[in-house]
Amino acid sequence: MSDTLAPDVRRGAKHGKRGRRASAPKPDRVASLWTDAWYDLRRRPLFIGSAALIIVLIVMAAFPWLFTSVDPFDAATCQLGEARQGMSGVHWFGTDNLGCDVYARTVYGARNSIVVGVTTTVITALVGGLLGLVAGFKGGALDTVFSRVTEIFFAIPSILGALLILAVFRTGNVWTVMLALAVLTWPMTFRIMRASVLTVKNQDYVTAARALGASAPRLMFRHILPNAIASVIVVSMINLGSFIAAEAGLSFLGVGLRSPDISWGLMIADARERFLEAPGPLLFPAIFLSLTVLAFIMLGDAVRDALDPKLR
């Protein structure tokens, strides 16, 4: 309890100093974990930087035509005679092996990366989180069965597993990539949710709610979930970056997205043959890919630090 109160008191004192609020903070103001975290986050340069980068990327994914007037899906924009040109005023990032504009393709590639990353994260958080919540709360046979099943998934290397699943569907697209990644990675969220539910469910306030006759769903969703969800959110944010990297990797290997879909991994694969003489078509998508993954991992890092005062 003192943990959650302390920052509020400190904040009250700060305001007092500035003379804006000389009296004590209003009694109805609750300093929850989230308001505290938000207060803390707004002051972190790491958070502001990564959040800004992510907003730009999301805008790029939603409205790529704001960033470039070239439509990379229009074959007429590619001129074979202009293949592998360097950077210029017309082609900011140069052109690739087929004479297509690398800048336009890189911009349009953001969408698939963001969609795969965000959707896979949401699926794993929902499936793994929900199962973890129920398994941790109910315990018993249900918990044992699910825990054994997750052990099986942990033992299978995820990139190889995803490669096999994608080979089953002959056509790779965003949906199959998301499915393959989600199938193999939900146990991670399951384990984290289960572990934090196990600690939370023995807290006094849960016992109190139970004594007052709260039903199982009410206990789970009203009392346990809000206090157990923080770690799942943090891990999900960090995983988001690795899902984006995994999509690029799988597309690079030829089992993920396929042409004419645009994916940074696919662009890297296409450019690798002539990479040593014309590095541009490979380097620019690579830089965008790295920045995107970096932004999400930095965001996860910042949120974790804000949510877990013990780590400071």
Binding site: G249, I268, R272, L282, L294, I297
Partner: peptide, 22 residues
């Protein structure tokens, strides 16, 4: 370490191949 975690194998692989190898 943050950079090392964030840059995918795909990228470090080609970068180092170009810089150190070639």
């Amino acid at each position: 370490t943050l950079v090392l975690i964030s840059v995918p194998t795909l990228v470090t692989g080609f970068m180092l191949q170009l810089l150190l190898g070639v």
